[in-house]
Amino acid sequence: MQSLKNIFSSTLHLFYPHVCTGCGSDLLEENNLLCLHCINDLPHTDFAQFNNNPVEKIFWGRIPVTAAHSQFYFAKETLLQHLIHQLKYKNNTAIGFYLGELMGTSLLQSNRFNHIDYLVPLPLYPDKERKRGYNQAAIICNGMSEVMNVPVLKDTIIRQRFTETQTRKHRTERWENVEGSFVVKDPAIIKGKNILLVDDVVTTGATLEACGSVILQTEEVKLYIATLAHAAK
């Protein structure tokens, strides 16, 4: 019987190969998304453990952030860029959920994110989210929620106007591009809460600052920030 199962499994793998999302290797366990080589190649930062880390310094003098973290270092033409591209543009929500679980685990291991009340994905403009089919930040939050046991708040903070891509803009242009883009629909929901605002990549922090500043207008809110990746300017 076991021999028949092995034959069936081998035949199934031949026609429907289960391959690593990172490198395409088929040398991985059945339920894994990444092979051991790619898992070991992920560039973790350990920022969650330290005050005044590089992500927190981005927001110094701009908005009061209680604590901030990025799970990975970002660089072009790397495994991590490939995985984020898979999440954002190739409908690979499974990898986003998985990376969110990794980030949630790191936050649990830190004593600096112990009292989060809500995970808030950075909102997309509704037309953009409909076109993509999902908000990648919400997928990351779902993975984090699975391990942190913290609810995801998806519709209380909304993006009320379309903004151009930030990729080729400098810091001042990025801020002007997103200023006034966000609104809190029901401040009573987040009043007095510890809010963890989540996105995929932080560079200058302009978009997170614009959204975070609106959140902080609600009474007695504490703001935390977490992103999958930190891209040095």
Rank of each mutant, 00 (worst) to 15 (best):
M1I: 14
L4K: 07
K5F: 01
F8Y: 12
S9Y: 07
S9R: 12
S10K: 09
H13Q: 14
P17T: 07
T21H: 07
T21F: 08
C23Y: 03
L27I: 15
E29L: 12
E30C: 12
N32L: 15
I39D: 07
L42V: 13
H44D: 15
H44S: 13
T45A: 05
F47T: 14
Q49G: 06
N52Y: 00
E56R: 06
E56D: 03
W60A: 01
A67D: 00
A67L: 00
Q71T: 11
H82G: 11
L83Y: 04
N91S: 13
N91R: 15
A94Q: 10
F97Q: 15
M103R: 07
M103V: 14
Y118Q: 11
L119W: 04
L122C: 07
Y125R: 06
R130Y: 15
R132A: 07
N135A: 04
A137Y: 10
N142Q: 12
V147K: 06
F162E: 15
R171S: 11
E176Q: 12
N177L: 10
V184M: 01
D186V: 14
I189V: 06
I190C: 02
G192P: 04
N194R: 02
D200N: 05
L208E: 02
V214S: 05
Y224W: 03
A226V: 10
A229G: 04
A231R: 13
